[in-house]
Design a binder for these strands. Sequence first.
DNA 1: GCTTGCTCCTGTAGCCACTACAGGAGTTAA
DNA 2: TTAACTCCTGTAGTGGCTACAGGAGCAAGC
Lengths: 132, 132
Amino acid sequence: MSGAGITIGALSEQTGVNIETVRYYERIGLIPPAHRSAGGRRVFDTDDVQRLSFVRRARQLGFSTDEIRSLLDVAKGARACKDAHALAVKHRDAVRASIRDLRRLERTLTEAADRCSKGASPGCAIVEALSH
Amino acid sequence: MSGAGITIGALSEQTGVNIETVRYYERIGLIPPAHRSAGGRRVFDTDDVQRLSFVRRARQLGFSTDEIRSLLDVAKGARACKDAHALAVKHRDAVRASIRDLRRLERTLTEAADRCSKGASPGCAIVEALSH
DNA sequence: GCTTGCTCCTGTAGCCACTACAGGAGTTAA
DNA sequence: TTAACTCCTGTAGTGGCTACAGGAGCAAGC
């Protein structure tokens, strides 16, 4: 038997989530406490694989663990889809803001680096830029 | 007297760096240990204002504290401008990579949110996207 | 049955760059 | 003198992991 007895190592391989991270997610309640074998080891099933994959993809999209908790609630029907939509839009707006900030940063860094590489100014152009 | 005796509070206001952060920077050696008054309080001067402003601008550009240490070395001539240039370019490339990642993220989030708001699918489009 | 080597367990501490206290002491204006 | 304010040190918390230490379960080979 035990057709669906998945060890934490196998779960980690299947989902791409680090073993320590799996235990961490359990500790903070992002995934439910795993069932245990007679020897006290965690035993997972395919549902656990699904859920952990969900969590991983959400993390890759940059959602915080708290946000993922809400998304999981939506997934299991305990919360309205509207909430997931609001989260996604809010997060997307934050991402857009980050992109704007980083673009400005990139310009500033490029300008400083270009002036420096041209060796025009007497001091260091990057240090100059930071000293104002 | 004490024409240049700046308290930590005044320094914080002039540079926009939090008081606790100033003490933190001193603790990790990003700024040198401040001089002390008879009563044991930190006393800063205009050089300290300059240096802390430098640190702040570098942080705003996303340099790590270790990188800022190197930039400060360049600023005081203990290290070549070439090193600052290398740091700036390396950091700019990291920023560019971040922007690329965030753009992809933004597309994914927008797509999921748009499908959701249209209310076309039976379940939640965002949850669907995360469940694959 | 025993050993070897692998995986797993718990608990704790570290990472980065701060931020937020608690509990006490110096300083300044009324 | 007193009240209000600023500052001091030391410690702990944040998020999202990651990395041990020191021990125990478990499978395969001899």
